[in-house]
Structure formats: structure tokens, C-alpha cells
Computed example of a mutant assay.
Amino acid sequence: MSGDASPELVALVKSTEVVRIRFTELTAVLDGDRGDLSKPQFRLGFARRVDQPREFGIRLRCWSESEDGTQLAATAAAEYQIIEETLDVPETPLLVEFANEVAIPMLVPYLREEITSLSSKVFGTGLLLPILTRGMLVFDPADFVATP
């Protein structure tokens, strides 16, 4: 975690265990010649379980599409459980902070391996995700807060 992590994030990290990591999407479509897939995009998603107030999931989707219809996408999901019985899943701003500091650094290596493997099998050449140093891939909590 970065040195400017909030006290709430520090408490959440200390009270959370990763339950599993899995993929919810793996897609590669070769339509004609392999077009330019060198500019991957990322999207962050969350899941809360109503029946389990101390469990939550964070999904990170990586995809790229070329003008000729070639597509490549993978979504990695990390599922977490809060082990401290007095804590429930926090509100979205803290989940985004958790994703930026904990989940994204955890999920990117899985995505990198799967994107390379999948593109190698379908396109004949493995596509490598660019190096993402800390802070290069972050999401703003304001993007996830519903406005009235």
C-alpha cells in the first residue's frame, strides 16, 4: 500500500482475506488480419453479496479491439471475505481505494498471463500488456458514486 492510505483502508486490509481468484470472461476473436491491439483499456467492477454482508468481489476487465474486428478481452475477479465480525463490506469509495491499492496489483499479473496465453493461441503471437507501475492504473471513487 502507498504511504497515504487511509486509516479505514489499513483496517480493511488487515481484516480481509482473499477467498479465490477466477476469470469470468476470456474472449479472442480473429476477424481477418490481426489488427492493432496495442492500446488495452481497463474497467473496474464490484460485487456485493446481499446474503453474506462480509463478502465482496472486485473485477478488472482488460480489452482491446481493432478496426478490422479483432477482439481480445479477459476479466479477472478476486473474491474477498472480511474476517473481522464487526465489519461489513464498506461503501463504494473505500472499495475503490481497496481496488486501487490491493486488488489491481493482485489481478494485473493474472490478466497479463491470460492475455498473453489467449492471444498466442488465437492469433499465433502473444500480446504483452504494458508495464503498469504503481499509480498508472487507478480509478476515481467519484466515477462509482451514484448522483441523484
Rank of each mutant, 00 (worst) to 15 (best):
V102N: 07
V138C: 10
A146Y: 03
E101L: 12
R134D: 15
T92R: 00
F123M: 07
E84W: 04
R112P: 00
T116E: 14
M136A: 14
P109T: 10
E91F: 00
A78T: 05
D143W: 00
A103S: 15
L129W: 03
I104N: 06
T147D: 03
K121F: 04
E84K: 14
V102Y: 09
D143A: 15
T147L: 12
V145C: 06
P105L: 07
T147R: 13
R134K: 15
L128Y: 06
G126N: 08
K121R: 15
F139N: 13
V108M: 12
L128T: 11
A99D: 10
P141T: 10
L128S: 14
A142S: 15
E84D: 15
P105M: 09
P148M: 05
A77Q: 14
I82T: 06
P141H: 08
K121I: 06
G124N: 03
V89Y: 08
F98V: 04
T116F: 14
S117Y: 01
T133W: 04
Y80R: 04
T125P: 02
P105V: 08
E84L: 05
V102L: 09
T92A: 02
T92Q: 02
I104K: 07
D88E: 15
A103V: 03
D88Y: 11
E114F: 00
R112K: 11
V96S: 08
A142G: 05
F98E: 02
L111G: 03
P109S: 12
E79Q: 11
L127P: 00
Y80P: 00
V108F: 03
E79M: 11
V108H: 07
V96C: 13
A78D: 02
A73H: 08
M136R: 11
V108L: 14
L127E: 03
A77E: 14
V89P: 09
Y80D: 03
T125C: 07
G126F: 01
A76F: 07
F123K: 04
E101W: 00
I104A: 11
G126Y: 00
S119K: 02
L94Y: 05
S120Y: 03
P90Y: 05
L127N: 07
F123H: 04
P148Q: 09
A103R: 05
R112M: 12
R134T: 14
E97W: 02
E114A: 11
L132S: 08
V145P: 00
E101Y: 04
V138W: 01
E97L: 07
A142N: 12
L107N: 03
P93C: 10
T75F: 09
P148K: 10
I115K: 01
T92L: 01
L111R: 06
F123Q: 05
I83G: 12
E114Y: 01
T92H: 02
I82Q: 00
P105G: 10
T86S: 15
Y80Q: 06
V138T: 15
R112Q: 05
E101K: 12
S120N: 03
P93G: 13
A74Y: 01
T116Q: 13
E85W: 06
L128I: 08
E113V: 13
L87M: 15
V108C: 08
T75M: 12
F139Y: 10
L128V: 10
A74G: 05
N100E: 13
K121T: 10
L107C: 04
E85R: 13
T133I: 08
V145I: 15
P148A: 14
T86Q: 15
N100A: 14
L95F: 02
P90S: 11
E84P: 04
E114M: 13
S117E: 12
L129Y: 02
Y110P: 02
E91D: 15
S119H: 02
